[in-house]
Design a protein around this nucleic acid. Sequence first.
DNA 1: CCATTTGGATAGTGAAACTCTCTAATATTG
DNA 2: CAATATTAGAGAGTTTCACTATCCAAATGG
Lengths: 213, 213
Amino acid sequence: MRVSELSRHSGVPVATIKYYLREGLLPKGEATSATQAVYSETHLRRLRLIRALVEGSGVPLTKVRAILDALDDTGVDLHHLLGTVQYALTPETTPTDTPEWREAERNTEELLARLGWRVSPSSPARPRLTHAIATVMGLGYQVGPRTLDTYANAAHMTAERDLDRIDPAAPRERAVEHVAIITALMDQMLVALRALAQEDVSARRLRGTDARY
Amino acid sequence: MRVSELSRHSGVPVATIKYYLREGLLPKGEATSATQAVYSETHLRRLRLIRALVEGSGVPLTKVRAILDALDDTGVDLHHLLGTVQYALTPETTPTDTPEWREAERNTEELLARLGWRVSPSSPARPRLTHAIATVMGLGYQVGPRTLDTYANAAHMTAERDLDRIDPAAPRERAVEHVAIITALMDQMLVALRALAQEDVSARRLRGTDARY
DNA sequence: CCATTTGGATAGTGAAACTCTCTAATATTG
DNA sequence: CAATATTAGAGAGTTTCACTATCCAAATGG
């Protein structure tokens, strides 16, 4: 496959492919001469994965590269790969020195302790959760244990299902890709479903019971 | 309150406040002379909400404005407001003319029919869900009814809880803000919790049962 | 009365993700 | 084999977004 064909098969412009090559997101094709290189099915898969991450979840290219590097690092097991992918996908959150932050942090810790979740103290999702709680509280709304438990249970249900679908015996190439997908792309699905569920509940409660939609 | 004080109370630079005023995100203060205007508590609340949306969920300013306009439109009831906020928050998704899209669309329709959710046919969350499914399928992975049901149930649990917390009798100003918050900010909480839950499940399954984390 | 603040307008910045242009070397096709 | 098209590689240019900085003239505030 040459660049133009790679472009056609993926729908990505040649200029963009060249850009990805320059940025090291896509490995170089095998050069057959000074002005020619051939690309394989692997390149096409990789390209599709990049586009899925970028278009599907708006992941910045620097983070995409971090994820791809982790996929290619054969010394990492699935559990740590999942952590690495999450780390790359989680936006940085700097703790602020406010009362809300401290209260939110306590909520986070208590929740994790209550549920007994095995989570690394350095997991970037911790401050992210704290930040989300602190933001809502900063607007003057409570985020109590009842709400957190409900959300946590819902999150755990999806996580169980996600891990059910990973086959640790599958070829590493695939298993590793699968982990990237469940962590990065399934979020989109959950968020879309949440919007639909809210609409449903809202229709039932805030309108009559006989409305069509 | 003058601009400088508004800036101090909110932590947002004066230059940025002026920018928001120019962009119509923040209503003008009440002018007391050609070079002086006073801002109220309402301005401060509004400013905090803008920052929460921008920092908390990376909502583009154009969408923030759409949300704020909906909040200010007193002719809209809570149910429709929720729809409007969701509409503003949901990224546009253009259907593609591929087999994956059509299959994903069928999955979406069947899921909603199976669950009996009352969802408008024009809800932008539909194509968003379809797009998410189609993207995952385009990478060669199945998204079956089992997975969709699990995710849908989880989503519905959070939606029930969200609507429980809305007080339809509260002053419109507050109820309306609450709706914006649950649709926009609670997503972040759910996603963060999902990451933590995945780590927990992954630790239990992909590692031994005695590992510390 | 004089340094400081403000409103209002215009212009500039920096990051991110492309997109374009160019060159010399090859490939393809009629 | 000659005309046309394609490619790798590198650099520069473009667009969008969200600010940030600079000016200026009017107006406080001490």
